[in-house]
Nucleic acid binder design. Sequence first.
DNA 1: AATGAATGAGCCTTCATTCAT
DNA 2: GATGAATGAAGGCTCATTCAT
Lengths: 218, 218, 218, 218
Amino acid sequence: MTPGGKETLQTRERLLKVAARLFATEGYRGTTIADICRHARANIAAVNYHFTSKEQLYREAWRYAFQQSIQRHHPDGEIPETAPVEERLRGRIRALICRVTDRNNLEFQIVQKELAQPTGLLREVQREALAPLRKNMEALIREILGPEVSEEEIHFCQMSVMAQCLGPMAGRHGRSSRHSCQPFWSRNRKALAAYVEHVVAFSLGGLKEIRRLHESKR
Amino acid sequence: MTPGGKETLQTRERLLKVAARLFATEGYRGTTIADICRHARANIAAVNYHFTSKEQLYREAWRYAFQQSIQRHHPDGEIPETAPVEERLRGRIRALICRVTDRNNLEFQIVQKELAQPTGLLREVQREALAPLRKNMEALIREILGPEVSEEEIHFCQMSVMAQCLGPMAGRHGRSSRHSCQPFWSRNRKALAAYVEHVVAFSLGGLKEIRRLHESKR
Amino acid sequence: MTPGGKETLQTRERLLKVAARLFATEGYRGTTIADICRHARANIAAVNYHFTSKEQLYREAWRYAFQQSIQRHHPDGEIPETAPVEERLRGRIRALICRVTDRNNLEFQIVQKELAQPTGLLREVQREALAPLRKNMEALIREILGPEVSEEEIHFCQMSVMAQCLGPMAGRHGRSSRHSCQPFWSRNRKALAAYVEHVVAFSLGGLKEIRRLHESKR
Amino acid sequence: MTPGGKETLQTRERLLKVAARLFATEGYRGTTIADICRHARANIAAVNYHFTSKEQLYREAWRYAFQQSIQRHHPDGEIPETAPVEERLRGRIRALICRVTDRNNLEFQIVQKELAQPTGLLREVQREALAPLRKNMEALIREILGPEVSEEEIHFCQMSVMAQCLGPMAGRHGRSSRHSCQPFWSRNRKALAAYVEHVVAFSLGGLKEIRRLHESKR
DNA sequence: AATGAATGAGCCTTCATTCAT
DNA sequence: GATGAATGAAGGCTCATTCAT
C-alpha cells in the first residue's frame, strides 16, 4: 500500500513491538497469537508467516526488547572508566535499577517471567544479557575487595548487589494489577533515586565488612 | 464409598498434595486439571467436585504448602527472643534462605511464580505469608538501626536483606530444567551455609554503614 | 440419556462406524475430524476424548472394519477342509473377491488407500490381515504344485492369484465417483460370479503350466 | 528477468519436474505448493502464476511424467509386429512390469495413488494412458484365444494379465517407507526378470485353460 | 514476467467445566 | 459421595490463493 515496501517492514516490526509488550505483561503462555495479531492489526496467520512459530517470535521479541533496552540505557551509567571504583559501582547500580524499574523497558519483565517459569526458549538470555552483567559486576567487586578474596566470596557479593537491584522487579504486575498496590518506585522519581543511593551505601558497607572479615581472618 | 467420608478426605488431601507440587514446578497455567487428577489417582471431575474450580484449588493448594512450610521451618531459626539482635537476624536469614532453597518446600516456588506472573488469585499470599515476614524483618532492623532512622530507610534495608534471601529463588526450574545449570546451593550444604554467613555479614556491614551515614548526617 | 450407559457405547461405536466409512472413501488425509463428528452426531472433541488422536482413531477404525469383515465373510468360502484342493482354492478366491468388491466391506478400501499412500499407521494391517491371507494361499498353491517347486515360484504364483483377486479394487471411488464409469462387478451378481469362475479357471491353468514347466525342466 | 522468456520456461519445467516427483511419492494432498516451490527454487506464487492452481499443476505434472515414460519405454517391448503372438505378449508384459517397477518412472506411481484416491482430476489418465494399454492387451489376447471367445471373457483375461503386471505397484512407498520391507523386484534385476517370465508362463497357461474350457463347452 | 507479503478458511488438539447418573 | 462421558471455546498452526507491486 505505502510505497517502498515500508508496509512490509512495519507489519513485522509492529508484531515484534506488540509481542514484546504482551509477553512482558502476560508471559509466554498467557499471550495468544490472536492477541498479538489483533493488537498489531495483522492477520492471524501473520505471526507464522513472519516468524514460523510462536516460540520463534518469543525469542525474537525478547531480542528486540533487549536491543532497545541497551540502546536506551548505558549499562555503566555513563560514568567514565577513569572514575573511582565506588563511582563506577554507583553508576552500574543506578543504571541497572533504572532498567529494571522502567515501565517502558520490557526486557527485564520478560526475563523475570522467564526465570520464574522457564520455557527453555531463552537460553540466549543468560548468555547475552545476564552473564555480561554479572561478569562486569564481579570485576568491580574484585577491584574493591582486592585480589586475595576468594572467587566464591566475590560471587556471593555479586549476588548480594544484583539481588538488591533486581528486587524491585518482583511484584511487577500485568493485566491483573488491579489487585496490587503500586510499588514504591512508581510513586515518584525521588523515591527511586533514594533507593539507588540506599543500595549503593548498603552495598559499600557490606563490601567493607566482607573485606574487614577477610583481613582479620588472615 | 467407604463410610465416614474418610475416602473423601483422602482424595481431597491427595489432590492438594499433587496440586501444590505441580503448581510449584509448572505454574498455574502449565498445570492442567487432568494432570493433577491423574497423579492423584482421582477422577477427572474430582477437582471441580472438591474445590469448585481450578482457581479455588490453586488458592487452597498454596495455603496447604504454606502451612506445611511453617510447620517444618521455624521462621525465627530457633533463636530465643533473648539472644542478641545480631543472632536473631542471623537466625531469621538462615531460616528464610533454607525455606527458599529447600526443594521440598513448595511454598516459595509457588510464590515466586505468583510474583512473576500474578494470577490475582493469591492476594492472601501477600497478607498471610510475605507481610509478616517483612514486618518481622523490619522490627529487627529497627532494633539495629535505632529509633531515629526514617521508616523509608528501614523499609529499604528490609528490601536489601530480603532480596538477598530470595535471590537464590530465581533460576529454580520445573520440567524444563534440562537446560539449566544447577544452582550453587544444590551442590552441597556447605555452600549453602557459606552463603548464609555471607548474607549475614554483608547485611550487618550494610546496616552499619547506613547507621553511620545517618549519624554523620545529623 | 438412555439408561445403562448405552449412550456412551453408542457414541464410541458411532464414531468408529463413521470413521471407517469416511476413511475408506476419502482416505486418511481426506477425512477431517469435524466430518466424522458431524456424521456421527458427536461433539468435535469426542474423537480426541475417545481415541486420543486422529491417528489412533484411524488404527481402531481399520481394526473395526477388519473384524466386521471377517465376521461377515468366511475366508475359506465355507469349503470344508476335506474337499479337493481345487475346490478349496475356488472357495478362497470367491471369498476374497467378494470381500474386495463388497461395497459394505470397508476393510479393503482402507487397505488399498493405505497401500497406495502409506501413513505408516497401519503396520498391523500387514501382520494381521494380509500376511495370513498370503500364507494360506501359498499353502494351497504348494499343495497343488507339489513339494519340489521352489519357494520363489510359489511366492510368484501366490502373487498372480492374489493380484487377480485384488485387481477389481482399483478404480473404486469415493466422493468423486461422478467422473467414473461403474465397474463391471457392480452391475450385477452374475458378472461377479462369472469373474470368480474366470479367475479360478485362469489360475488353475496358470498353475498347471508352471508345474508342467517345472517337470519338463527336471 | 532474462530476455526471451527463457527463464520462464526453465522455471516452468523445474516446477513440473519437482511436482511430478513429489506427487508421485507423497500424493496430491501430501504435497504442498510451498514444498514444490522450495524444491524447484521458485517463488511461492510461481505455481499459481504458471499453472493457475494446484489442480492444474497436478494434471500437467502427470502428463509430463506420462510423456517422459513413453519416451523411455517402448510399450511393445521392442518386439516386432511380425513375431509370434506369444513373443509379443511377453514383450508387452515385460515392458509394462518394467515401467511399473522403475523407480524413476513417476507415471505409474501417480496413477496408483490416483486409482486408490481419485481426486477426479486425472480423468484423462484413463483415456490416454490406461485405455490404450488395455485395448492393446485385449487385441493380443483375442488373437491367442481366437475370435469365438466372448468379449467378456477377453476382458476378464486382460484383467488377469494386467493385474499381475500392476501387482508389484502395491506397497510402493514414499516418505514413510522406513516402515516397509523392500519389495522383491528392487533386490536385483534377476528377480525382476524371473517374475516377468513367471507372469508370461502363468498367463499363457491361464489363457490355454480358458480356450480349452471354451472349446469343450461348444 | 515475477515476486513476496498477506490473507482467511480450516485442521488437530487441549482443557476447564458440566451433566446424568 | 463420586464418576466418566460429553461439551464448547479457544489455541497454534498449515496452506492454497490473492494482491500490490
